[in-house]
Write a protein that binds this DNA or RNA. Sequence first.
DNA 1: CTATTTTGAATTAACGTTACGTCAACAAGG
DNA 2: CCTTGTTGACGTAACGTTAATTCAAAATAG
Lengths: 334, 334
Amino acid sequence: MATQRDVARAAGVSLAVVSAVVNGTSHTRMRESTRTRVLQAMQQLGYQPNQTARSLRLNQTDMIAMILNKIDNPVYGPLRHGVYEAAAEHGATVLLGDAETMRFGSRFLTRLLSQGTVDGILIRGEGLLDDDVMAELRSHPKPILILEHAMDHPWIDVDDRRAGEIATRFLVNLSHRHIVFVGGLGYLSQQRYLGYQQAMDAVGLTPAPHLATGFGEQAGADGLRQAMQAATAPTAIVVNNIMSAVGVLAAARDLGIAIPDQLSVVGIHDVDLMQHLRPAVTAVRMPMYQLGRAGVEALYDLIAGRPSAGGVITDPEPELVIRDSATALTRIRD
Amino acid sequence: MATQRDVARAAGVSLAVVSAVVNGTSHTRMRESTRTRVLQAMQQLGYQPNQTARSLRLNQTDMIAMILNKIDNPVYGPLRHGVYEAAAEHGATVLLGDAETMRFGSRFLTRLLSQGTVDGILIRGEGLLDDDVMAELRSHPKPILILEHAMDHPWIDVDDRRAGEIATRFLVNLSHRHIVFVGGLGYLSQQRYLGYQQAMDAVGLTPAPHLATGFGEQAGADGLRQAMQAATAPTAIVVNNIMSAVGVLAAARDLGIAIPDQLSVVGIHDVDLMQHLRPAVTAVRMPMYQLGRAGVEALYDLIAGRPSAGGVITDPEPELVIRDSATALTRIRD
DNA sequence: CTATTTTGAATTAACGTTACGTCAACAAGG
DNA sequence: CCTTGTTGACGTAACGTTAATTCAAAATAG
């Protein structure tokens, strides 16, 4: 493969000039005619710059890593999109990894830890990473930004507490009084439950305990079954994890509970799938795309040594998308 | 950050020895005591090898790219998993890209084309790439393997024709006679339609024309509506794209068609979601995980200059997963 | 006791870039 | 005519690694 040296030889100039043409450096100047001559030689030889050499010289790879806890979660679609887009604007490419496969000593981790692989790291799902893995990552010379609430790291996140509040208030306004929260594990669920509590407290209702059944479809089904065993069955449910909403719908059908007539359901996080389910699921849309973009910007602030604008994203706010799974309470179930 | 030179200095040895310790090279030998001394120095200084320098020297990055046409499609979950796993076994990391964002001149494409970025490329969704993008990729010095049928490239794929046949034959065996195929665009759908045709022909039934409505949930809904406008309504449907099955279920509900009592549905490709829908969707599971693994192996064959074992994966075969969306025909609808 | 082999290491030349420092040729100013 | 400045380029030293080559000292053979 052709190198700058070959191009230089073909164009009858020095290496420095070729490099300057490639990078548009102002330091080394040249006549316009020389520039086109070099350009032609590059074309003719099919020259492609060698990223590796460039990275070594500049100590910068134009690549960032993003680690997600459950990479398959459709919720991450827009997040990934935002990250890829913003990264491209910074001239960078994204190396995507899954927290689940990131065990101690795994190939991906070793790779990340070695120098000259990425310029920075974005992590969502810190809680799912082993402590020793996090410790290793912490020793990384390049900046790390956490895409959720973190104590000892720069972080940025969407407003989960607010989402729980919005979902719950919507149901309260539909006259529901027995509202349960089907949740998961970890800080995120806790925040959403907090929002649920606030909305309940605000109108003098007693919050039900947090039904933490985990993530995914099955967790939703389990959660609904548990909720229905209570002395007074709920008339409405806030579902922490959006994929759990699918399980709630399935379990409701299996139990002969009509949604929304007998039970209203509101999910947190919105994905395309929700509008195609029957009933279509009312959900709180989180600004994940913006989180992705903001995350990359904040990471590049850190990379440049600037102070990073972290914290909770309040613009845009979580937004309620009203569909068919929640309706006003018209009769009290016995 | 500590380099091999620093380690060498600290351990009182030469660069060569440090390199040999890091790589376990047999060429440069040393006393066991020297080795541990170097190891200690590495520990103390927190030495991490520099990937960039390594890649430059070895002309090999231990990174492969995978390009998918619709990265969000849950069907790709197991594929991605297989690829990541097999790549890790080869000591490599995976750079994941989306065909949709790979326009001419895009950051990701330029990056791929420049030397020293990846050792090889895996592509699924060649049909969705612009011709000029494919032309650029074709000029890439590193090997490219297509994860679907291809004419002028090494390729490997699952058996889509067979999947169409399996789905259709299952419905035929359930006594269905009016079976339609709701499909999409591109070679894959065509193959599956071919399988459908074969299964119909085999029992002397006339295949219905290919209802190509595209991909995704909406395409399924559109397909069902179109199918229902026929002079004699079908009693069963084979859905090409599994996410379209969600749309078929929704449209059926909207139209007041009971599944499976009035209409049987079988999807091609199986994803977790299917077992959580109501009715749970009967589907043909494709060996996508194995495709991922086999793809990586074939790519590394190419990288090593060995002949690559390509073609259609016949072991395991597509497998029918029977759930609740298809049932035996007991009465003829008018 | 010398000749030969083995052991344990050190030197060094790349890999392809980029950026600093240098410098000849020419132009403009006094 | 000399001084100073500008233009257009060239040479070269890194960046951190690996592997080929070289070589002294120790061990073994004859």
